[in-house]
Design a protein around this nucleic acid. Structure first.
Length: 713
DNA sequence: GGCACAGGAGTCTTATTTTG
DNA sequence: CAAAATAAGACTCCTGTGCC
């Protein structure tokens, strides 16, 4: 048994040990009948390899071998069709048998892809002679160019694969490159991307397109390639096409951000380039795709007409649409992978994840940091002119239950806007319980460094925090929602006891009572007096010993439900009284905040959750940026007003919460995303032209995410 | 030769299924 | 029903490819 299980830890084909640190990773069972659409063994069978369960042979394969199988499934039909074609030609052509034999003999020496290098696989491959199907597909290109095969089929391949571009190269290519450079050399008037070229993008175009974007290089090379409208192949038609092209590009702004975009089908697009507009005969069309970008190179062999069309403006050497897509995904808090699925579902061309990450690291995150810091500076400047009233709360921000990261959010309670977010890693402060106090410390240090005086703070009932705030002489208040939530939970637990069912009838009443105590009292002792009076009230006693609150304020009325009153000396009363008059609870009741609540902080947490879903692992830098984005979204939309009806009433919507019953919630105006547009503008106007200062800033931020706790004390 | 992009592989994670 | 096993998603790092 033990030996069998150890064999199954290895891949059947490449013999790789798939057990890492005692855990099997990325393996698939060969004979899993439930696997959809087919089991691995069935898929192999389809390709000609019959595989059976055998003692001493593993029943699992690794992900790498499954990937090879998938490739073979894609490529083999192509390869088989080649074989069929060759057979047909061979049978018809006399004397080709020798060549055919030669080819069969040559098939194996082709370069083996890395993935197929393992000995176990080779044996399998040989058994059905498809080992190089994948290789053949890719090597087709190299063989044809190097060996200069005279076969007409090869020639066709060369053309289709774009090799011709290098050989012919001349007019079409020059036209294209000069177009790019023309924009570089001239300022705005003849820039191919249009006269609306903004200064920053212009500055990008000032660099030769081949140079690294981050380098500032001379522009001498640029003008050399300018004069291509005066090419020897000058033709009025060409001029027409060039003018049409430039006018088309002139209409859009340099980044085309505000341009509408469309989904264009390849077939429909290619209809535009099929025939030469000058001689109306078929022209050669070559395409080049990079992410969402497509360039079409049309060349007519009959009249020398050539044209290059680009689907998007290009900044430096990066298509603008690709960055815009990355920015749109990132700034709206969406997930690349979800968008990728949507794109894939409709065969829409997309950028790779690596590209997305590169864009995020180079431009998007710097934009977020920059915008957030500007906003924060301004907010803190205003706040420094008065005594700040803030609320803070920590939430775990990691997948699962492991509180690896925590985010401490600080909110200005006067306008309900988030003014600071601190990301704290449990490992840097020595455990998750210390994260909250650390987050608060960091936030307060920032406020103090900007000259903000904290008047009061509403925060958690954590003893460490109480001690810290006492030391710093900051008035701390308790949030009513938190207190009533904590008490509700305890009451719910008691209500489950079969002798304490009466507690259920009072849960909502006690919760409401907490809010009433907080809002109707002017001092701590008065709040406590009102709070403790509920114990009498629950026994149908409405006159109390406490002079601060001698009598219930509600009108005298007879209850229809006599069973709701607690019986003196009952177990239920004893348990509820213990919860309500607990010393810590009374201390917190005395500190209940009457004017400011942190319910908006919870609303922010739910927004933040949409930007940083818990089941996705983000690197700390990206996590912080996403939280900043959440804060920007929240701050922009926190003060939305209620929608009115034509009759002049406010609109409400009925909600049916999980607990039962129903509530009326105001219908507010739809949320806006102005911050997204501002950020994208920032990316193109400031960061893409001069990324270095922003990158430096983001490095500082990321470093500060990991600074050791000792620095902060 | 430089750059952008694509994709593979390793690692960590959660969700689901299987097993005892 | 709980624990173990399995599958697969998500992320980082790295390398290869092809265009300019």
């Amino acid at each position: 048994m033990a030996s069998n299980s150890s064999i199954n830890d290895f891949c059947r084909f490449c013999l790789k040990n798939m057990k890492v640190s005692g855990v099997l990773g990325h393996c698939t069972t060969l004979f899993d009948k439930n696997k959809k659409p087919l089991s691995i063994s069935d898929r192999l069978k389809h390709l000609g390899l019959v595989i059976t369960k055998r003692p001493g042979r593993s029943k699992r394969v690794c992900r790498g071998c499954v990937a090879i199988l998938s490739k073979l499934e894609k490529s083999l039909p192509v390869f088989w069709s080649w074989m069929e074609n060759e057979k047909d030609e061979e049978s018809s052509a006399a004397g080709s048998a020798i060549n055919s034999d030669k080819r069969n003999g040559e098939r194996t020496p082709l370069k083996t892809p890395n993935a197929l290098k393992s000995p176990g696989l080779l044996s399998v491959k040989r058994s059905f002679t498809v080992s190089t199907s994948d290789t053949l597909m890719t090597s087709r290109l190299h063989i044809s160019t190097q060996t200069d095969s005279p076969g007409c089929s090869t020639r066709a391949t060369q053309v289709s694969l774009g090799i011709l571009g290098h050989c012919v190269g001349s007019k079409g290519i020059q036209t294209e490159s000069s177009m790019m450079r023309k924009s570089v050399a001239t300022s705005t008037a003849d820039a191919p991307w249009g006269p609306g070229t903004s200064v920053p993008i212009g500055s990008v175009h000032l660099r030769p397109s081949k140079r690294p974007r981050l380098d500032e290089e001379d522009e001498g090379e640029v003008s050399i390639l300018r004069p291509e409208p005066h090419d020897s192949t000058y033709d009025p038609a060409q001029l027409v096409s060039a003018v049409a092209e430039s006018s088309q590009l002139i209409d859009m702004s340099s980044t085309g951000y505000k341009d509408s975009k469309y989904i264009v089908f390849e077939k429909n697009l290619m209809e535009l380039f099929e025939t030469c507009p000058v001689c109306s005969r078929m022209s050669e069309v070559k395409t080049y795709r990079r992410g969402t970008f497509l360039s079409v190179h049309q060349k007519c062999h009959h009249c020398s007409y050539s044209k290059q069309w680009k689907s998007q403006p290009v900044v430096g050497s990066t298509p603008v649409g690709n960055i815009q897509l990355s920015a749109a995904i990132y700034f709206t808090g969406s997930s690349y992978f979800k968008v990728q699925k949507v794109f894939e579902a409709m065969h829409l061309q997309n950028i790779s994840y690596t590209t997305f990450r590169n864009h995020a690291n180079s431009y998007l995150q710097p934009a977020v940091i920059h915008t957030w810091q500007q906003y924060q500076e301004e907010e803190l400047r205003i706040l420094s002119q008065k005594r700040a009233k803030v609320g803070g709360d920590m939430r775990a921000d990691s997948p699962g239950h492991s509180a690896k990261f925590g985010r401490y959010s600080l909110m200005n309670l006067e306008n309900n806007s988030v003014i600071d977010i601190q990301l704290v890693q449990s490992s840097e402060v020595g455990g998750s319980p210390k994260m909250e106090i650390e987050g608060l410390r960091r936030s307060l240090r920032l406020l103090w460094s900007k000259g903000v005086t904290v008047d009061l703070i509403i925060t958690d009932r954590h003893p460490q925090i109480q001690k810290f705030l006492q030391k710093k002489k900051i008035t701390r208040y308790c949030d009513v929602w938190r207190l009533q939530n904590s008490i509700s939970k305890r009451l719910a637990k008691v209500a489950k006891d079969k002798d304490c069912e009466v507690v259920k009838k009072w849960q909502r009443g006690i919760s409401n009572h907490a809010y009433w105590c907080a809002t109707s009292s002017s001092s701590g002792p008065e709040r406590v007096a009102k709070w403790t009076s509920v114990v009498n009230h629950m026994q149908d006693i409405h006159v109390h010993d406490n002079p601060l609150f001698p009598q219930c304020q509600h009108p005298v009325r007879l209850s229809s439900d006599r069973n709701k009153w607690f019986q003196p000396g009952s177990k239920a009363l004893f348990k509820v009284e213990k919860i309500l008059t607990n010393k810590k609870v009374l201390t917190d009741v005395a500190r209940l905040s009457s004017q400011y609540q942190t319910s908006f902080l919870d609303a922010f947490h739910s927004v933040a959750l949409r930007f940083t879903p818990r089941n996705v692992v983000f690197p700390p830098g990206e996590r912080l940026c996403r939280l900043y984005l959440a804060a920007m979204h929240f701050n922009e939309n926190s003060s939305r007003i209620q929608v009115g009806t034509t009759a002049g009433n406010w609109r409400n919507a009925t909600h049916f919460p999980k607990k039962g019953g129903h509530t009326l919630e105001p219908v507010k105006t739809p949320p806006t995303q102005r911050y997204v547009h501002n950020l994208i503008s920032d990316v193109f106007e400031e960061i893409v032209p001069h990324p270095q200062p922003y990158l430096k800033r983001i490095q500082e931020i990321q470093l500060s995410c990991h600074r050791p706790s000792t620095v902060l004390h």
